[in-house]
Design a protein around this nucleic acid. Structure first.
Length: 1048
RNA sequence: GGGCCUAUAGCUCAGUUGGUUAGAGCGCGCGCCUGAUAAGCGCGAGGUCAGUGGUUCAACUCCACUUAGGCCCA
């Protein structure tokens, strides 16, 4: 306890020591141990991919995931924190494919799925070491040993169980999804992959005339950039509310959106025969452009349908719709009962269904199709369209959007449950609940959960392709029972060869694997192998009390947790969620690993410390979903404005405690400063607790800066002399006890936010009976008896008065060192005067005045004027408000006084009854009277008596002398307890100051001999216009303890 | 193209149910203070509250539209 605190501190170095200490005592494990059996606070950790290195986003989320559990632990809860790894999915496959030089699915299958999957397994965890290092360095406590991995057999078995539950509830179905597809690689790509390869291209853009049924020479015009999809056209789509017109063009009539007329008829509008809304066109039939699917007319094809995606930005406002080749097309088609065709093979060549072009690659048919339409007179316009179009990120072929067989979770059936679940979730920031997330839920479509990939959890479906018999397996045990086999691993390469004997014959596995979001969404159950183990465990651990991830998880993890929670248990999967925003670079751009446009997080932590980085992020709006423009300077600022001042306060206490050999003792103190800082402290604790209980981190973190400022720059500064006093009186003990208590409580309250520096300080302050680590302590409770808003207000008013006095001194160029006779504090309000009276000694000392007078007669120093109290008068006066405000502004002193004494004042109003004005209807404003040394702020006015007599002047000089000697001491590097001998040379005019204040000077500077001499070496110093030369030498070295003894 | 968020001093951010001098910190300039401090205190300069329109006696605040940025989706 109270080991010497080095004057120079390196926070990163201290943090390394703390990390070693935590390892040494197993601090994290201990923090869990001491809460064993307590109520649990349930936390779920969202699993990251370990195929990349962690960046600021991870550090930010990790910090949030650390603060709340640390707080709840100190608050007496047991908070299990298991880390998770997302092991499956495309990111892993890409990385591996690149390393192995495998360019498409064919090459992967040639390489061998077993070898491929095992290689994926081999690289999944390659960066876990780096991850652990980062997580550790930022100070996050989390259990890596008992973490979960989505590729583990137990985890995957739980996923099967989840899938089977959905299957049994009838929530799984097979359907088609329009996906980007690479014709060369013969593989569907994810939307993410499609986004990798957008390029500018030129495509033919043609406008085609569709002949309307039962009309003479009347055509609907539709526009497309993919002529090869026209043989698959099954509908035309318009927007309900868009205006469409029939125009006469020669002998034919065309239908198109009115907004597109100018584009199609730039030289003048044709005659408009008829104008209608889109909804009036609904249901009209047209003749198929090609004969291939004419038979589908009976099934609802070749009609005009409506959908919201239709715009008039380009084309004709009537959209050619081929439900097999476009997401919007498929959706609109489904909604209106239009069938779907996809007459192309795996390499995107037309099948026999489109006989004229059979076996030809679809894109190569564009020209022929255009030519044919032209020949048939169905082509009315042809141009080239420049646009950005996705290409395969490997082979650069233009992608083709086409229907792919896919397994879905039927969201429509459980949407009500999902919305009910969301209603029970507390979102930070709040707006996400009904905004982004709520809207997403409302409009959620069925969830495509299968992927045509390899490294993932296989769909547990076996099927007889002939009969359609399909079996869903819900556990490994079930699979083993049905096959007689034994399965230690259920990855795709082990499952594909498994044949199950079904009722209608052998069943073979459906080849797809699950979307890795399905796996992470199943985390609440799968992390503990539920329900195969830990059946009772889930009751106590679902839903989570708290989760935290980035805004990008709205459609990711947050969503899948809610879907599965609602589907399985009709409950939300989490109660509180903190959503963090994105971290941007200093110039407001996205951080990019490739561009290296940001400082390495390790470098930042090793320069300013992890505490500074944590607090910097936590005190930003980024912890409630807004962006953070990150700068290294910001971290430095946090270090300097919070951590460093805290350190200095601590260092101050330890320095003097050592000198005085003070031992911790709890002592109630009645000293106003002590009571004040305790009031501030408990106010702080109350605010922080309120914030953390609701997961509001930002307000919580910023409160510390204000408090620490109060502590160092007012409490300690004002109390300094109480620590210096040589006597060991009660006041000194009270000051020590208070500062000790305040610091100890502060570090406990701050510990979840800045776990390192608080630990360092705590360890040097703790007595042997206290817990070993600050993180093993209880979180401070609010001591109601210490709360004192009245005293806080008194101090606030006192500080205002001091501020005004300092301002007056600076105006008059009267240094604070120069004592003045008196300060006059004026306020009309009794309670303000009482507050100032209570702490007048502080004002006297801060302003260095001999006397403080408090008066009520403010009209002597300020001019009063009145201003309308708009808040009160506005609702009553309405339109007459401005007229009354003008009259109030012109009120004179007498009228204001009369109002203040309770008399009403009748104001004449034009065209209305006179208005009776009362005291509460006005606000008093004050202005300093001209020519007086007076300053006003609100209802406090301060005047300073600047006249000085000779005694005051001498005293001021004496203080200058002390100041000069102290500076020399400091320059010479003397210890605060060293005794000195001083020889000085001055002119006669300054000599009386030395003589009259000899004891004062010697006492202040620990000077044992003070002698005037004729000659003194060294440079002369300017003392407020007087020259003086000092020679100072140390008399003898004294240890601090020796000094303490000597003082006794 | 759609949804959500953001826009306030040079920078980072506050700003209560709408109420009339829009605040703080940092930075800058001047002055002061300092025997814990890498500090601190006082003052000053610095704002068309992104723009336009509307509601209202009164709009940074409420509504509509526009612009710019971000995230997600298409």
């Amino acid at each position: 306890m109270f080991e010497k605190v080095a004057t120079q501190v390196s926070f990163p170095k201290e943090e390394e020591k703390v990390l070693a200490f935590w390892d040494e005592i197993n601090a994290f494990e201990k923090s869990l141990e001491i809460r064993k059996g307590c109520a649990e606070y349930v936390f779920y950790d969202g699993p990251p991919f370990a195929t990349g290195l962690p960046h600021y986003g991870h550090l930010l989320a990790g910090t949030i995931k650390d603060v709340i559990p640390r707080y709840q632990t100190m608050n007496g809860k047991y908070v299990d924190r298991a880390f998770g790894w997302d092991c499956h999915g495309l990111p892993v496959e890409y990385e591996l494919s690149q390393e192995l030089g495998l360019n498409n699915k064919r090459e992967i299958e040639e390489y061998g799925i077993a070898a491929y999957n095992e290689a994926c397994r081999g690289i999944v965890l390659r960066y876990t070491g780096e991850w652990r290092q980062f997580v550790k360095r930022i100070g996050r406590w989390v259990d890596f040993e008992n973490g979960y991995r989505t590729m583990d057999r137990d985890y995957m078995e739980s996923i099967w169980w989840v899938f089977k539950r959905l299957w049994d509830k009838g929530l799984i179905y097979e359907g088609h999804k329009i996906l980007p597809y690479c014709p060369k690689d013969a593989t569907p790509l994810s939307n993410f992959e499609a986004n990798l390869g957008y390029e500018e291209v030129q495509d033919p853009a043609i406008t085609v005339a569709f002949k309307l049924e039962g009309e003479q020479e009347m055509y609907a015009l539709a526009w497309t950039t993919t002529p090869w999809t026209l043989p698959s056209n099954l509908a035309l789509t318009v927007h309900e509310d868009v205006d469409y017109v029939y125009v006469q063009d020669g002998h034919v009539t065309y239908v198109l959106a009115e907004a597109r007329l100018d584009t199609y008829y730039p030289d003048g509008r044709p005659e408009i025969v008829k104008a209608v809304k889109g909804k009036d066109l609904l249901g009209m039939q047209y003749e198929p452009l090609f004969p291939y699917f004419e038979n589908l007319r009976d099934q609802g094809a070749f009609r005009i349908i409506t959908a919201d995606f239709v715009t008039t930005g380009d084309g004709t406002g009537i959209v050619h719709t081929a439900p097999g080749f476009g997401e919007d097309d498929a959706e609109a088609g489904r909604a209106h009962g239009v069938p779907s065709v996809c007459p192309i093979d795996a390499e995107c060549r037309f099948t026999a269904e489109v006989g004229d072009y059979e076996t030809r690659f679809v894109k190569d048919c564009d020209a022929d199709i255009v030519k044919r339409l032209k020949g048939e007179g169905k082509l009315v316009h042809q141009t080239t369209h420049h646009h950005s179009y996705p290409h395969c990120w490997r082979c650069e072929s233009p992608l083709i959007y086409r229907a792919i067989s896919t397994w879905f979770v039927d969201i429509e059936k459980i949407k009500d449950k999902m919305l009910r679940a969301n209603a029970q979730i507390h979102w930070v920031p709040e707006h996400l609940k009904d905004g982004r997330f709520g809207n997403w839920l409302e409009g959620a479509r069925d969830w495509a959960v299968s992927r045509n990939r390899y490294w993932g959890c296989p769909l547990p479906l076996w099927r007889n392709e002939e009969t359609g018999e399909t079996l869903c397996i819900g556990s490994i045990g079930e699979l083993e029972a049905r096959t007689g086999g034994k399965f230690d691993d259920i990855h795709k390469h082990f499952m594909d060869p498994v044949i199950i004997e079904g009722e209608t014959g052998p069943l073979t596995r459906v080849p797809e694997v699950l979307d890795c979001w399905f796996e992470s969404g199943a985390m609440p159950y799968a992390q503990r192998h539920y329900p195969f183990e830990n059946k009772a465990w889930l009751d106590a651990h679902f839903p989570a009390d708290f989760i935290a991830e980035g805004l990008d998880q709205t459609r990711g993890w947050f969503y899948t947790l809610v879907v599965l929670g609602a589907a399985l248990f009709d409950r939300p999967a989490f109660k509180n969620v903190v959503v963090n925003g994105m971290i941007l670079t200093e110039d407001g751009r996205k951080m990019s690993k490739r561009l290296k446009n940001y400082a390495d997080p390790m470098h930042v932590m090793n320069t300013y410390g992890a505490d500074a980085l944590r607090l910097n992020m936590l005190s930003s709006p980024v912890v409630r979903g807004e962006d953070l423009v990150f700068s290294e300077k910001g971290v430095q600022k946090t270090m300097r404005s919070v951590i460093l001042p805290l350190w200095h306060a601590y260092s101050f206490l330890v320095t003097y405690a050592r000198i005085d050999n003070w031992q911790p003792a709890s002592e109630r103190s009645d000293h106003p400063l002590d009571r004040w800082i305790r009031a501030r402290l408990n106010h702080l604790v109350r605010d922080i607790r309120n914030g953390l209980d609701r997961c509001y981190l930002q307000t919580a973190a910023t409160r510390f800066a204000t408090f620490i400022d109060d502590m160092t720059n007012w409490y300690i500064r004002r109390s300094r002399r109480r620590f210096w006093k040589s006597e060991r009186d009660g006041d000194k003990r009270a000051a020590y006890a208070t500062l000790y208590h305040v610091l100890l409580t502060t570090v406990k309250a701050l510990a979840p936010f800045a776990p390192f520096v608080t630990e360092t300080i705590y360890r040097n302050l703790r007595s042997s009976e206290m817990p070993l680590s600050v993180h093993l302590c209880d979180y401070p409770d609010v001591i109601e008896a210490d709360l004192n808003e009245k005293l806080e207000q008194q101090m606030a008013r006192t500080r205002t008065a001091v501020g005004l006095g300092r301002y007056l001194r600076s105006q008059a160029h009267a240094k604070t060192r120069q004592p003045l006779r008196q300060a006059i504090l004026v306020s009309l309000h009794d309670d303000v005067r009482a507050d100032l009276m209570a702490l007048r000694d502080i004002v006297a000392d801060e302003l260095n005045v001999k006397h403080v007078e408090i008066r009520a007669d403010e009209e002597e120093v300020v001019t009063l004027s009145a201003k309308a109290n708009f808040r009160v008068l506005g609702p009553r006066l309405g339109k007459n408000m401005n007229a009354v405000a003008g009259q109030i502004a012109r009120l004179g002193f007498e009228e204001i006084q009369s109002l203040r004494e309770g008399n009403a004042l009748a104001l004449e109003l034009e065209g209305a009854e006179p208005f009776a004005l009362a005291a509460d209807d006005i606000l008093i404003q004050r202005k300093e009277k001209e020519g007086m040394a007076v300053a006003n702020e609100g209802d406090i006015t301060v005047a300073l008596d600047l006249n000085r007599d000779e005694k005051l002047v001498r005293e001021g000089q004496a203080r200058e002398i002390v100041h000069a000697i102290q500076n020399i001491r400091k320059e010479k590097g003397l210890d605060v307890a060293d005794r000195i001998r001083v020889t000085y040379r001055v002119a006669d005019d300054l000599a009386p100051a030395f003589d009259q204040f000899r004891d004062y000077i010697m006492g202040e500077t620990l000077c044992t001999a003070l002698d005037r001499a004729g000659e003194v070496g060294g440079d002369a110093i300017d003392l407020d216009g007087h020259a003086a030369t000092f020679h100072i030498e140390k008399t003898r070295a004294m240890s601090r303890f020796a000094r303490a003894k000597a003082d006794l």
